[in-house]
Design a binder for these strands. Structure first.
Lengths: 135, 135
DNA sequence: TTCAATGCAAAGCTTTTGCATAAAG
DNA sequence: CTTTATGCAAAAGCTTTGCATTGAA
């Protein structure tokens, strides 16, 4: 039936953690914060809460190859960043840069495809690895 | 140390399957084709071969939330364009567009990161799925 | 009292690893 | 004969589910 939502301590605690996280966070990350704060909340509940927030559109969920899912709260002033991943060392670099918006809006207009910047990862070689390769 | 590569029946069979697949294919998909052809090759070998091809840059690997990884052979006529992948229906769209070069050169100059267009996939929602979501 | 939420343990999936065996060079 | 590749079974991660219990309304 209609399904009335109950307000619980667990829900608000988890929601607060992800709200105060400026970057994305994994379930493990949430579990750690909970432990730090002395909150004893089951991992299952964390999964279910994040999943719920995600389906409500309050949180973005995204996955990368071989990694746990990441969640990020969608705040009003949320500056969407995107990611560069080094194919050599595996390092993940977060950058905020308006240039991808230009590409995204072009692709949306001309190719009728809405790019999800959070999900998108540009692969390549990072500065450090490029240096080392030259040696 | 140098590691000499051996030519095996399994390797060439798997490589052929993915070469003749015009879109992407999962490990399960490869297993199925193998069974169809009467080839008895272990799942582990399929994983290892695809991983190897991927790290050699011959195959592109995609990961989506809650799905098995997909692999796609990078053919010669893939060199000039890059790829959009719909997170909803999984469709892979090939586009030729110079705009990504501008982004890539900006990222290289300002963020000291060399983007690999071949490996990079932009995730988002395709036209058809966007329409359906509105209903 | 009713029904949603919780949490443990167990199950489910995909992917990786250990190790003995087979095959290539 | 030496080294790589294979394949089974088992392990490893991450995530979901079953079910009895707790707690919000």
């Amino acid at each position: 039936m209609a399904h009335t939502e109950y307000k619980t301590k667990q829900r608000s605690v988890i929601e607060n953690i992800i709200k105060n996280e400026n970057e994305h966070i994994t379930v493990d990350g949430v579990m750690l914060k909970l432990k730090e704060n002395g909150d004893n909340i089951g991992r299952t509940t964390v999964y279910r809460t994040l999943e719920k927030l995600s389906s409500e559109g309050k949180v973005r969920k995204y996955v990368n190859a071989g990694e746990s899912a990441c969640y990020q709260y969608i705040s009003d002033n949320c500056q969407e960043h995107f990611h560069l991943k080094c194919s050599n060392c595996g390092k993940l670099i977060h950058i905020e840069c308006k240039h991808i918006d230009e590409l995204a809006s072009h692709i949306e207009k001309e190719h009728n495809f809405t790019v999800n910047k959070l999900k998108t990862v540009l692969y390549g070689i990072c500065e450090d690895c490029a240096k080392n390769e030259k040696n």
